[in-house]
């Protein structure tokens, strides 16, 4: 996963609703692949999408970093603990076999495919577009009195607060540093203690920002979000239909290549 990167390419211009749903769809069909050919097909698809996005490949590699240890752990686990009738090497509870190698290679591929495709979504779609698409996707739930607009508003306010709180944290950390706090120095207890002077001011200012925001919204006539018009209008274009057709094609070939 990564943070939104401003850019201009076909992937950027796709409707965020489509991108959001198709990303989930793709993560689903990754689990249908079960042989070399089907994995190769999915990898080719992901690389093609990455190519279309015109984003430097380095950003996708960076997306692997936070889950690197998880991938390594899972792969090693599969490699050493897959039971087999003709092991290459055997010691105690550890078994190394051809089957184990194949399974761990597949697991590794799954991780790569899923992380690359979700990184592609987050790099090319702004958080606000994602929250707009969630609102749009949840719309049918209005029938059962689910408060879709309120939930969408909560989502976008939460997103709006992220950079605000980051700024506020930096500011408070700087102020406490100037008063002689050394973050990340000393033992564990001392380190935990050094966060108190950040957390308390952060809570206080979050509440006051939230309170101000509520007053500002009410004074501009906000009531319950019903009948609000949109500044950003999502528009479904031909390219979005084509993407879906492309995805259906991919699924058919995948099912064809899959061994039963």
């Amino acid at each position: 996963m990564g943070r939104y990167l401003p850019g201009d390419s076909l992937i950027y211009h796709l409707d965020p609703r489509g991108k959001f749903l198709l990303t989930f769809y793709f993560v689903g069909i990754v689990f249908f692949a079960n042989n070399v050919a089907s994995y190769a097909l999915l990898l080719a698809f992901v690389l093609f999408a990455v190519y279309l996005s015109k984003i430097n490949f380095g950003f996708f590699i960076k997306g692997l970093k936070p889950v690197f240890w998880l991938i390594l752990f899972t792969v090693i686990l599969q490699l050493l603990f897959t039971p087999s009738n003709n092991p290459i090497w055997h010691w105690g509870i550890f078994t190394l076999s051809k089957e184990g190698m194949v399974i761990s290679a597949y697991i590794f591929m799954r991780f790569i495919l899923i992380i690359f495709i979700s990184t592609l979504l987050t790099l090319t779609t702004t958080p606000i577009e994602i929250s707009d698409s969630i609102e749009s996707i949840l719309k049918p739930l209005k029938r059962i009195n689910f408060p879709v607009t309120q939930v969408a508003l909560m989502l976008s306010i939460a997103l709006r607060f992220v950079p605000l709180l980051v700024d506020e944290t930096t500011k408070i950390m700087d102020a406490q540093r100037a008063r002689g706090v050394d973050f990340g120095e000393g033992g564990l207890i001392k380190r935990i203690k050094s966060f108190v002077p950040i957390l308390i001011p952060l809570f206080v200012s979050s509440f006051s920002i939230a309170y101000d925001l509520a007053i500002a919204m009410e004074s501009r006539g906000y009531k319950d979000g019903e009948g609000r018009s949109k500044y950003r209008v999502l528009s479904w274009a031909r390219r979005d239909n084509l993407t879906i057709i492309f995805m259906i094609g991919l699924t058919i070939i995948l099912l064809f290549l899959r061994s039963y």
Binding site: K171, A175, R177
Partner: peptide, 14 residues
């Protein structure tokens, strides 16, 4: 930082 004291904008937030 002991020699250079700094009063930030709206320092009451510290």
């Amino acid at each position: 930082r002991k020699q250079v004291g700094m009063v930030f904008q709206f320092p009451e937030s510290q």
